[in-house]
Design a protein around this nucleic acid. Structure first.
Ligand SMILES: [Mn+2]
Ligand SMILES: [Mn+2]
Ligand SMILES: [Zn+2]
Ligand SMILES: [Zn+2]
Lengths: 153, 153
DNA sequence: TTGCGTATTTGAATTATTATAAAAAATACT
DNA sequence: AGTATTTTTTATAATAATTCAAATACGCAA
């Protein structure tokens, strides 16, 4: 019997292992427990690059990935992640909420037909000369949405 | 008995009369029928200066004004007005839609606590260096929302 | 005026989301 | 380990915003 077990059939598991630890730490640092569901959602959200997802989409992906997770749990976790600064909500469509894994300040292209969002790095766009704010208020964020459509030729 | 009646208690009524004709024309020009409900809503929306309203708020105002109109009718009319270019929808809150009587391009302050919107004239703010659009697309609109909160001292 | 096609209104249904509350899972403590 | 404490999940119900579709009102021709 070998000293190093591989009984989960995932090869040496090095990369998976590091990623798993990474996500588990991310969750623990947010004072949340790394449950099976939470880890699965974190994996879907953060495994590869930044993403913009709706609750419905994330739910569908979890199902596809064979993780049985209720829609209520999806909402709970999206909101908990958002409260912890691991996600931010992007308001572009009055009928659904989008959650963004890129929490650094930046802007968006919004493809009105498909509902897809695409990042515009903060440095790639200039917002200048914001007029004086109403008295007693301060800026919480400046959001630019460039709504786009297929060219009608 | 005086020759000029004042039985509605609204003075000579000249201004009201002109305003009514104005709104009726606005509605007719949009190929819509100037129904009692539609005229009442138009009056609430356009009687004095630009406004930002939610369906719920407009409904409450109609009730207050003694016009019995269903919420469905409010939505129908807000959408019809929007389609006709008499209103535009502003997306700032993922849970409700705002409709703006100012259809010229401009931006907004959004007071997160109260839900109030305030115009920023287009000329008062510069959006520059928008990066290249995804291929085959064109800009439909550029929306800037400056989210503000009460200063926490 | 009456009848007919279309526009409009509105009660009812649908959708996205949130709340509740009881069971299950994770952690803490011994 | 075994047990207590807390967090999480999830079925289910509730809610709020919005949309649908049946019924009504309107505009116009005969
Ligand atoms: Mn939310
Ligand atoms: Mn809408
Ligand atoms: Zn983004
Ligand atoms: Zn405005």
């Amino acid at each position: 019997m070998p000293a190093i077990s591989a009984d989960k059939g995932e090869g040496c598991g090095c990369v998976m292992q590091y990623e798993a630890i990474d996500l588990e730490k991310k969750i623990r640092d947010a004072s949340l427990r790394p449950t099976k569901q939470r880890l699965a959602l974190a994996r879907l959200l953060y495994a590869e690059g930044n993403r913009h997802v709706t609750a419905e989409r994330l739910h569908a992906e979890a199902m596809e990935a064979g993780v049985a997770v209720s829609l209520a749990t999806i909402y709970n976790n999206l909101h908990q992640f958002t409260a912890a600064g691991l996600l931010r909500e992007v308001v572009v469509d009055s009928s659904r909420s989008y959650f963004d894994t890129n929490v650094a300040p930046h802007h968006h292209f919004f493809h009105e037909k498909s509902g897809a969002l695409e990042d515009i790095p903060k440095s790639a766009l200039t917002v200048d000369n914001i007029p004086a704010l109403p008295a007693g208020t301060e800026v919480s964020s400046v959001d630019v949405i460039v709504r786009i459509n297929d060219t009608r030729g």
